[in-house]
């Protein structure tokens, strides 16, 4: 790892409410883009019971966050280096008890994470879908909350529900929205405008936009190839947008 010097990382939580809207693909690619821009990035798989980051990146994972929580293993031993500036902290899959951590486990994970994150410029957390305890906890632990949604009514409703819970119960006020799988730029703008209007009217929240990711075949192809689309198809529409989003994230 090249990033040994102590840093003050920006901790960013990426959530969605609904599953299958592209959180993991977005997280992996934006982490890749940030690392390409010279930033030291840690991507934490926050879906502690049904992990996916390792799948999207085609990693063969030996140790996960689970070993730290259950056996007290040093968290840094679970880090996987994707490139010298991009590391992944994988989670376990098919372990339901990991999905809801107790207070003690949360405290242990927090202190363990705090020991390793100061080597990075950005810490991205790809959470599980839904509004489970771990999702809410990761969101409250983070400095920046990104919510991904698609134009589907189910995704809109679940994203809104997530924001409502985080705002009402956890005092979060600043949300960055990323509209995924849009057919046109205008569709992205319309979805964001509508969501903003509802958030302002009912929750008195003014969200910020991170952009709109276009529907792009290279995204699904890259997932099947277990490789970031930014590397597989760097000139694709999705890759150009993810680079722009990474730049916006750097300025947050």
């Amino acid at each position: 790892m090249t990033a040994k010097t102590k840093r003050s990382p920006k901790i960013i939580c990426i959530s969605s409410g609904k599953g299958g809207v592209g959180k993991t693909s977005f997280s992996v690619n934006v982490a890749t883009a940030l690392s390409q821009k010279g930033k030291a990035v840690l991507l934490i798989d926050g879906d502690l019971g049904l992990a996916n980051v390792d799948v999207v990146l085609g990693l063969n994972v030996r140790h996960t966050i689970r070993e730290t929580i259950e056996e007290g293993r040093d968290l840094s031993s679970s880090l996987v280096e994707i490139n010298p500036r991009f590391h992944v902290l994988p989670a376990s899959s098919g372990v339901p008890e990991m999905a809801n951590l107790s207070y003690e486990e949360q405290a242990l994970l927090t202190s363990s994470l705090e020991e390793i994150i100061d080597r990075f410029d950005f810490v991205l957390i790809d959470t599980a879908a839904g509004i489970g305890d771990s999702v809410l906890w990761f969101n409250t632990w983070s400095q920046v909350n990104i919510v991904i949604l698609t134009p589907d009514p189910t995704s809109l409703t679940d994203a809104y529900a997530l924001i409502k819970v985080l705002h009402t119960r956890h005092d979060r006020k600043h949300f960055h929205l990323l509209i995924n799988s849009v057919q046109s730029k205008k569709e992205g703008q319309d979805v964001f405008a509508n969501m903003s209007m509802v958030l302002e009217r009912f929750l008195k929240i003014t969200p910020l936009t991170l952009g709109a990711m276009p529907q792009d075949k290279s995204v699904s192809m890259a997932i099947r190839q277990q490789r970031p689309f930014l590397l597989g198809a760097p000139e694709s529409k999705a890759s150009l947008e993810i680079v722009a989003v990474a730049e916006r994230i750097m300025n947050l």
């Binding site: 009514p153 529900a161 509508n194 009912f202």
Partner: peptide, 19 residues
């Protein structure tokens, strides 16, 4: 409860329906 209300849903779904 943080349940999404009928009014909130109606507003959220307005735009996709239009589209």
């Amino acid at each position: 409860s943080c349940q999404v209300t009928v009014e909130e849903r109606a507003q959220l779904w307005m735009q996709p329906r239009k589209a």
